[in-house]
């Protein structure tokens, strides 16, 4: 177990961060090349003012019609994503490791706050899971891929919470958590989680068409 832990916090962590960053860069560049090849005439018409205005609406809870349609989903989706970014970046457990291994340190959230926000993420994953099973129009468009991605995020946060509360063998749980977290990082550029990379561009594209061509709002 110690050997696996050492591997997970050492070489595998490097590999995961490298694949995440380089993979994201590669995917963005490949997509740019594809867009220029297939749709160059439209790329020329991308309108920053329309794109940014639309993005401002879409990143605001209830700022777009799409967000007003289904308030429950909207609240959960925003809570989920805010916690998803806040927790890993400002968690003492992560900062202490960067501090010990690299001498980097920055302010952390209080442990109980981070713990609560993590539980919010786990609950949100359960909600998404329930929705994919119980709501027919969502189940209909659900593919294996969607389960996998949801499981990856859910498992990372659940094992993290269990490790923090010292439930189960701590070395096992922590190692499992780290491996899940690394798998999730690698999955961002290569799975549906790439909506983090492409979401802004899809929105900007749609907004440009709505704004410049149809003279309509897309929010």
């Amino acid at each position: 177990m110690h050997a696996l832990f050492n591997l997970a916090v050492g070489p595998l962590a490097w590999l995961a961060f490298a694949l995440f960053i380089l993979g994201s860069a590669y995917r963005l560049m490949a997509m740019r090349a594809l867009a220029l090849k297939k749709d160059a005439s439209f790329v020329a018409y991308i309108s920053w003012p329309h794109a940014l205005k639309s993005l401002a609406h879409w990143i605001t809870p209830f700022g777009a019609l799409g967000w007003r349609e289904n308030p429950g989903v909207t609240v959960v989706t925003f809570a989920f994503h805010i916690c998803l970014f806040l927790v890993p970046l400002f968690l003492m457990g992560h900062i202490a490791l960067f501090d010990a291994f690299h001498g980097w340190s920055w302010p952390a959230l209080p442990d109980t706050v981070a713990d609560t926000l993590s539980i919010v993420v786990v609950a949100a994953c359960l909600y998404f899971l329930w929705r994919r099973i119980a709501v027919p129009e969502v189940r209909f468009i659900t593919r294996t891929h969607d389960w996998l991605v949801l499981a990856l995020v859910g498992a990372t946060f659940l094992t993290g919470v269990l490790a923090y509360h010292r439930i189960g063998d701590n070395l096992f749980m922590t190692t499992l958590h780290i491996l899940c977290g690394e798998a999730m990082l690698v999955a961002i550029p290569f799975t549906r989680l790439s909506h983090m990379l492409f979401g802004f561009f899809s929105r900007g594209y749609i907004a440009s068409e709505f704004g410049s061509v149809r003279h309509a709002k897309d929010w």
Binding site: H2, F5, A96, A100
Partner: peptide
């Protein structure tokens, strides 16, 4: 904090013996 973590965790990781996770020391 770094002095403690480097000394304690560092040796445990080298020797592959003794606690290396937060919850196995802070318990």
């Amino acid at each position: 904090m770094r002095a403690f973590h480097r000394q304690c965790m560092g040796c445990h990781m080298d020797k592959q013996k003794g606690p290396v996770t937060c919850g196995d020391c802070h318990e």
